[in-house]
Amino acid sequence: MRAWLRAPGSLSRRLAALGERYEVQVLRQTVAPLRAAEKRALGLPRRGCTVVREVILRVDGEPLVWARSALHGAALAGPWKALKGLGAKPLGHLLYADRRVARSELQPRRLARHGHTWRQMAGQWEAATGAPPSALMLWSRNSVFTRQGAQLRVMELFAPTLAAQTPRRGRARRR
């Protein structure tokens, strides 16, 4: 799993290279409260509108990653306004198509299985896939992308089946 947690560049591109069909399943995109780790990462005030997007990334139908992105609502009217119309397109297209976007260092993190984030992911995972996530689905990586001073935090939580795959660069068909 270490290779996936530390792999630079676009996770979408690496996942797409694993199979014939790469898909982004949007679970929700809404205004929601920021979690403490998100507030710290983004340096945001305690109040304000926050936009959260949660997705499952699939390769050939197999769910491999649950991801959550969060940003202050004001950024949707400015530097991150393209996020509004992203739909089922990979976030990576938005992040890596613009050379002005800078990414922080990747921060691997092991989630608490009974913590809020894991419980929320587990409920969404089961509703979307029809099966509960593996109890070993605990490793995530976090990073912050900055564009014109506005920050977007991304957390990617990896299914343990991904550990057997080697992250690599490449292209595959997207649905």
Rank of each mutant, 00 (worst) to 15 (best):
P45T: 15
A128C: 04
L76T: 11
C49V: 14
L71D: 15
Q25T: 04
Y22K: 01
R113H: 13
V101K: 04
L136K: 15
R53E: 09
S12P: 00
S10V: 05
L15D: 03
G78W: 00
G43E: 12
G123F: 04
W125H: 13
R173F: 08
K89G: 04
A75W: 06
R13F: 02
A77F: 03
A77G: 15
G85T: 12
E126C: 10
T166I: 06
A74D: 13
R113K: 13
I56F: 15
R141Y: 02
R175W: 09
S12W: 03
R40V: 15
A3N: 07
R21C: 03
L71Q: 13
P45H: 13
L42V: 14
A16V: 01
L42F: 05
L94Y: 03
H72M: 11
R28T: 02
L11K: 07
W139F: 11
K39R: 15
L44A: 15
R168N: 04
V52G: 07
P33C: 15
C49I: 13
W139C: 05
A70D: 12
A17R: 02
R110M: 03
M121S: 06
G61V: 03
K89L: 15
G43F: 06
E156Q: 11
P167T: 01
R168W: 08
G19K: 00
A112M: 14
I56G: 08
